[in-house]
């Protein structure tokens, strides 16, 4: 879900950069040096995981996983996504330097919101609650990102309305897939390594 260079106006680009900068600053402030390798290496794991294509009906989809990233890293999702997107821009020319802020914000904000609202539920509760929270985190963060991308595209002009609709509709099946995978991964982590979800 990258917005390419040259689409957005200066005001939107500046706003995206400013908001992302604030998010990254909060993220860095909340992390101490001991957590740096953790954030970076988990971010790399997510990057690798996003290369996997999962069959969904007749098509294949790449996972976004920003919901799970938010659940595991919290505010660290901002620096983690900034780094991942910056490297994609430099190495593959996906996105670009001027859209880095907007793209980071669109991906990271829903992730952090999911962490703030649903993070507690994945830690506590009975058998079902954490899985439900995982499903919601996975699907809502992808859905939220799609909505943000659509809204950002729409700021570029009336002409982008169809495209904005298309972005949202195309992500509906992805939302279900992300929800299922995130819920199952939360279940796995609760059994195997509860500490990663912040459980004592």
């Amino acid at each position: 879900m990258h917005i390419s260079e040259g689409v957005l106006g200066g005001v939107v680009l500046a706003a995206g950069a400013g908001l992302s900068l604030a998010g990254v600053a909060v993220g860095l402030k909340k992390l101490d040096y001991g957590q740096m390798p953790k954030v970076a290496i988990l971010a790399a794991a997510f990057f690798v995981a996003s290369l996997v294509s999962v069959p969904i009906g007749p098509a294949k989809a790449h996972l976004v996983l920003n919901g799970l990233l938010g659940l595991l890293l919290g505010w660290g999702a901002f620096p983690a996504l900034l780094v991942a997107l910056a490297l994609q821009a430099v190495l593959f020319q996906f996105g670009g330097l001027t859209t880095l802020g907007v793209n980071t914000f669109n991906m990271a904000l829903p992730a952090v919101l999911c962490y703030l609202v649903l993070g507690g539920l994945t830690r506590n509760g009975g058998q079902r609650m954490p899985l439900l929270a995982g499903f919601l985190a996975g699907s809502l963060s992808v859905g939220g990102s799609a909505l943000l991308v659509a809204a950002t595209l729409y700021t570029a002009g009336q002409e982008f309305l169809t495209m904005a609709h298309l972005v949202v509709v195309a992500h509906l099946p992805v939302m279900v897939l992300e929800g299922v995978i995130t819920a199952a991964t939360v279940g796995f982590l609760r059994r195997v390594r509860p500490a990663m979800l912040g459980m004592a």
Partner: peptide
Amino acid sequence: SNWHTYRTYAHLLGMLLVRSYDRAERVY
């Protein structure tokens, strides 16, 4: 396109994350 696949991928992802987490600990 079935539950088995999605659960398997979720476990693969979970294992990758657990190993990355442990690796980060060792690196630090």
